[in-house]
């Protein structure tokens, strides 16, 4: 439970913020923290305090929804963040390796959290129960074609 007690919602939120403005040493710390959190999610999700679970859910959802913004303000902001990242990389404040590791770990963490939320969703449980109870049928390419091209 040691690590569970150490979980703080604010620290989880830090993972979702613009971490690439941080120096490499701090980025490595956050990578290690994300790895620890993932283990907690995998092994002790039910025991995590509710505020930590909510913070993890917010992180996972915001991570998943990341995509190029469509509005002008969002595009300008994304450009600015990209510029800062390029400068930090050019100046050697962060390395590509550290940034890559960080992004990989946060992606894995977000995925595990979404897996947990999915498993807790009653609608998901019901859909899975129903699918398991059904009789299976052979699968053919012709059927795939019909299902997808004539929806």
């Amino acid at each position: 439970m040691g690590t569970v007690v150490a979980l703080k919602s604010a620290e989880v939120r830090t993972l979702g913020e613009v971490a690439w403005s941080l120096p490499s040493a701090r980025l490595r710390e956050l990578t290690s923290y994300a790895r620890e959190l993932r283990r907690e999610v995998e092994e002790r999700w039910e025991e995590l305090p509710s505020d930590s679970r909510k913070a993890l859910e917010d992180l996972a959802r915001s991570w998943e929804d990341r995509s190029l913004p469509r509005d002008l303000f969002g595009k300008v902001r994304a450009f600015w963040e990209g510029l800062k990242l390029s400068l930090a990389l050019a100046r050697g404040q962060i390395t590509r390796e550290d940034l890559g590791e960080f992004l990989h770990e946060v992606s894995l963490l977000s995925r595990r959290v979404m897996d947990r939320l999915e498993e807790e969703d009653p609608a998901f449980q019901e859909a899975l129960r129903k699918a398991l109870a059904e009789e299976s049928l052979p699968l053919s390419k012709d059927e795939l074609r019909a299902l997808i091209l004539d929806p």
């Binding site: 009789e135 299902l147 929806p151």
Partner: peptide, 17 residues
């Protein structure tokens, strides 16, 4: 050998749409 449940076919149709 691959088989599919009716739920999978229904899901795939919905996703394509």
């Amino acid at each position: 050998t691959l088989r599919r449940k009716p739920s999978f076919a229904k899901d795939l149709k919905r996703l394509a749409k």
